[in-house]
């Protein structure tokens, strides 16, 4: 429950940052915080009491109760990759915006676009 609440807090902080911060770079960082919240949530769903990491050691046939759920881990590997890609692309866009308008402040940008 604590981990879920932690993920919820991170998600709220990230979303609030995206909505309220005026600087586009800070918005991007807040979006990363939000993505991390989703990753924490999924990985905590994969946790099983008394289970170990989903890597087969020495020994006989694997028993499902002995290993954590590998599927959320795989999904979150995908999510991390997507998050890296979106961050890279967004940084590229920010460099362009900064070089065109000389500001990353949302309100000043809107004023210049007016």
């Amino acid at each position: 429950m604590t981990t879920y609440a932690f993920a919820a807090a991170l998600f709220t902080i990230g979303l609030a940052g995206m909505a309220l911060l005026p600087n586009l770079l800070r918005k991007l960082l807040a979006m990363n915080v939000m993505q991390v919240a989703v990753i924490v949530f999924f990985v905590s769903l994969a946790f099983k009491d008394g289970a170990t990491v989903p890597i087969l050691g020495q020994g006989g046939a694997p028993v499902a109760a002995e290993f954590m759920n590998p599927l959320p881990h795989t999904l979150m590997l995908t999510a991390i990759v997507v998050s890296v890609s979106t961050t890279g692309l967004a940084l590229g866009l920010l460099v362009r915006i900064r070089s065109r308008f000389e500001t990353l402040n949302e309100r000043r940008l809107l004023d210049k676009l007016r």
């Binding site: 879920y4 994969a46 759920n69």
Partner: peptide
């Protein structure tokens, strides 16, 4: 989140339906 299964519950839906197939046969 109150509706979610307990953290670390081995009988949670995520751990009982599909994933044992992958853990045991992968």
């Amino acid at each position: 989140m109150a509706e979610l299964p307990e953290f670390g519950d081995p009988a949670s839906p995520a751990s009982t339906h599909v994933s044992p197939r992958f853990i045991e046969d992968a």
